[in-house]
């Protein structure tokens, strides 16, 4: 992977200089902090809003509810943020001509794609770590203590799923000079696999099942989906390989 180190350095710098760290981190942190707050103060919020709670009895919130809601929100919002961040990563460079400037130097296409993938993954995983620390701390502080091991397991699976979304989007970004086309197709594939993930048996092999597995860890349900994990990692590797192959065979 000739040229990976300087390319990765440049990509990481770009994440900072174009405020992607701040934007992704900010969004994740917002949900990491507000989810436990919402659960804790929902009755008060409703009361302030003038709602009568005499009809509906809201049970006291649990740590599992708070952490599981956080995972669900990050799972949904994270997909959108991943697609938005990754859809232009290669497409924009192809359109603007910076890809030609960079690849006319002695660098491999694999290094070019990998540097982008690693930098974006680090941005997302770093933001997730930050958000999950705040979410866990607030949950324990405001609601009740929780199983930290299960929460770490949940975050690892959630993180892997978001990295899968980044890889899919990156692959489509190498196909087109239009970032919108890349984003649209990536979103369609991610939504399609999520639809397939709810199917019995077949769904157990879908990357989307990782989210369900993460939830199972929290609730103590022992069901795990190792095939989905293996397939997700396989698809990520496939996407990186084909993205660089596409660039190699493409007339730039």
């Amino acid at each position: 992977m000739k040229g990976l180190a300087p390319l990765l350095k440049k990509e990481l710098k770009e994440q900072f200089k174009t405020y992607r760290w701040l934007i992704v981190g900010g969004i994740f942190l917002l949900f990491g902090i507000t989810t436990p707050l919402m659960f804790k103060y929902l009755p008060e919020i409703l009361e302030f809003a003038g709602e009568q709670l005499t009809i509906i009895e809201i049970p006291p919130p649990t740590a599992v509810q708070s952490l599981s809601e956080y995972a669900s929100t990050i799972g949904q919002i994270g997909i959108l943020v991943a697609v938005l961040v990754a859809m232009g990563s290669i497409a924009n460079e192809l359109r603007h001509g910076t890809a030609i400037m960079t690849m006319s130097k002695p660098v491999s296409r694999l290094a070019f794609v990998s540097a982008k993938f690693i930098a974006m993954s680090l941005t997302f995983l770093g933001s997730m770590v930050l958000a999950s620390i705040f979410c866990f701390a607030y949950t324990v502080w405001l609601i009740e203590s929780a199983d930290i091991q299960a929460f770490i397991g949940l975050n690892l699976l959630l993180g892997l799923f978001l990295v899968f979304c980044l890889a899919i989007t990156l692959l489509f970004s190498s196909f087109f000079k239009s970032s919108l086309a890349a984003g649209g197709l990536a979103l369609a594939v991610i939504v399609a696999q999520a639809g397939l993930a709810v199917l019995p048996r077949f769904g157990d092999y879908m990357p989307g099942k990782l989210l369900g597995w993460g939830n199972n860890l929290l609730t103590g349900n022992g069901e795990s989906y190792w095939w989905a994990l293996a397939i997700t990692i396989g698809v990520i590797c496939f996407c990186i390989y084909f993205a660089q192959r596409t660039l190699k065979h493409k007339d730039l």
Binding site: K10, H96, G97, T98, M101, S104, K105, V107, K248
Partner: peptide
């Protein structure tokens, strides 16, 4: 041809519209 880094190491290219990372 594909992936001949030595070729890139021995040549320089100025495209018709040179593009840069504007944040640099």
């Amino acid at each position: 041809g594909d992936g001949n880094y030595l070729l890139n190491a021995k040549t320089g290219l100025l495209p018709d519209v040179p593009a840069f990372y504007n944040w640099m």
